[in-house]
């Protein structure tokens, strides 16, 4: 029986080592998601860390209402969890037509329609979550745009690892 990579014990240890489950406002990560949101002309940008049972936003731009307050959602709703499983970018042009996310409350209740996320991969090779942008209208994403998201993910991951190397 294959184990769900989201629940992988070593991956969860890596999240703990990098202190990504802790509540911390990070101005650098916030700057990256603001830039990405502007660049893609989409209202929402996130650094989403996929813990074992929720996704937790290490940085966010454009959230409203209860999600802005909670700064995360249950993992079974999370678009980003699909990248943790595949290790690849996850692209959704129209969430209502995508079998992986069409029943997620983020689609059915919160109106998320388009999504593009690139995996945050640690230097030890664990996929910890995604750097992503999303919006409420359907939209396609070019190869160049996905490459740009990968660059943002790499920059965010480098910052997270340098931050963890500093004394707590």
């Amino acid at each position: 029986m294959s184990v769900d990579k989201v629940k992988d014990s070593d991956r969860i240890e890596e999240i703990a080592r990098l202190r990504l489950h802790e509540d911390e406002v990070d101005v650098v990560l916030n700057k990256y998601v603001q830039e990405a949101s502007r660049e893609f002309n989409l209202p929402i940008g996130l650094v989403s860390i996929v813990l074992d049972d929720v996704q937790k936003f290490a940085a966010s731009e454009g959230l409203k209402g209860w999600i802005a307050e909670t700064q995360g959602t249950p993992v079974e709703w999370a678009f980003c969890a699909h990248s943790v499983r595949s290790g690849e970018p996850f692209i959704v042009e129209d969430s209502e037509k995508n079998h992986l996310v069409k029943e997620s409350p983020l689609t059915t209740m919160e109106g998320i329609k388009c999504y593009a996320g690139a995996p945050l991969i640690s230097s030890r090779g664990y996929v910890l979550g995604n750097f992503c942008v999303m919006g409420e209208e359907s939209r396609s994403f070019s190869t160049e745009e996905v490459a740009k998201l990968k660059d943002y993910a790499a920059k965010a991951m480098a910052h997270i690892e340098s931050r963890a190397a500093e004394p707590a």
Partner: peptide
């Protein structure tokens, strides 16, 4: 959440699910 390692990660997961439920 105050415990180091996996327990801390799981604690945060449970706390955030609770916050989601409450909201």
């Amino acid at each position: 959440c105050s415990i180091k390692g996996k327990v801390g990660v799981q604690g945060m997961s449970m706390k955030m699910r609770l916050m989601t439920y409450r909201n």
